[in-house]
Simulated assay, not measured.
Amino acid sequence: MTDTTNPGLRIGTAPDSWGVWFPNDPKQVPWERFLDEVQQAGYEWIELGPYGYLPTDPSRLQDELGKRNLKLSAGTVFTGFHKGDEQWKRAWDQSLEVAGLATRLGAEHLVVIPDLWRSHEDGATLEARTLDDEQWKKLAIGHDRLGKAIFEEFGMRQQFHSHADSHVGTYREVERFLHETDRRYTNLCLDTGHFSYYGGDNLSLIQAYPERIGYLHLKQVDTSRLFDVLKNDQSFVDAVAEGIMVEPPKGVPEFAPIIEAVSAIDPEIFGIVEQDMYGCDVDAPFPIAARTREHIFGCTRMARVS
């Protein structure tokens, strides 16, 4: 029996689903075209993407979104707290810019991505792929401090994004991160594709830690390619270029059970489609985005536009 009191999750999309990873890159789709195609694909919610890709003047950005009936769900910053106390200024400076802009447009979430141990530009190894106990401690303290600060300053919630080629990717690593952080200040942006990249069971995590799920990135990974990627120790940036993240229903995990489980926790949580497509042809994203939206709304009733 359908729960008529639960409208389901708000479904949106992000610049990442149009192949956007950087503020400026001539290979990426121009931001005006991105916004136009988001509207044409039938979405109403978007993320800010890399700061500087969309206009950073609040009035101009509000005008551009408003004339396309679009709204902002979150901004994104990058952190490296495991490296030491000097990383605080870098994280806070970004947060002041991103949260300062995003909150002017009504966004209440800050998606925080940890630095990767392997470069997201060329796949080069930058540091050890695992953390020692002291680095784990610094990581946790830094994120709790950031979460507390952005809530007090902006009323925003920090949503930590585990990531391929980062130090927090497997089920055990995500679980340790949750155990070492404070739910008042640090919760998860559960990226379904990145979590599946290392074999994580999204539903098991949701069921084990429902109070820590604050935001969703909806993404599928191609398991027919994944084990070759892991066996050959291929970098994430190279795997993306070869199409490791695929449009649904061609990969895992299934979206419907995840959307339904999270909507039962809190229907105000966002489900943002974020298919990693950096390096794609500029004509490729729009039809995929439109089909993905059709798939989501066709596979579950627990999804809504706005």
Results as ranks from 00 to 15, higher is better:
L139T: 11
C189T: 14
A140H: 07
R172F: 00
G100C: 09
H109E: 10
W88S: 01
A124G: 05
L131E: 02
D115A: 15
H163G: 02
E134Q: 13
H161K: 04
L226Q: 04
G200K: 00
T125V: 15
W117P: 01
S224R: 09
T125A: 11
N187Q: 15
D222A: 06
S95I: 01
L218H: 01
R145C: 02
E180Q: 13
D115Y: 12
Y209T: 04
A128Q: 12
D132S: 08
Y215V: 06
R176F: 00
K89F: 07
P210D: 10
F81S: 10
I141M: 11
G106D: 09
Y197R: 01
N187P: 02
A102Y: 09
G147P: 08
D85V: 12
R145T: 12
G214R: 05
Y171G: 00
W88V: 10
E152A: 14
H194D: 08
H194A: 10
V111L: 14
S166I: 05
H217N: 07
W136E: 07
R212D: 03
R104K: 13
H161V: 02
I141L: 15
G193K: 03
K89P: 01
R212V: 04
F227W: 11
R212H: 11
G142D: 05
S95R: 01
L146F: 06
V98P: 02
R183I: 15
E152T: 11
D122V: 04
W88I: 05
D93N: 15
G200I: 01
D144L: 10
H179T: 12
I206F: 00
K89N: 12
D133P: 07
L178Q: 04
H194C: 03
F81Q: 06
L218M: 14
W117F: 14
G200L: 04
A149P: 03
A128I: 07
A128L: 10
K89T: 13
G84T: 08
T103K: 15
L190P: 03
A208S: 13
R104N: 11
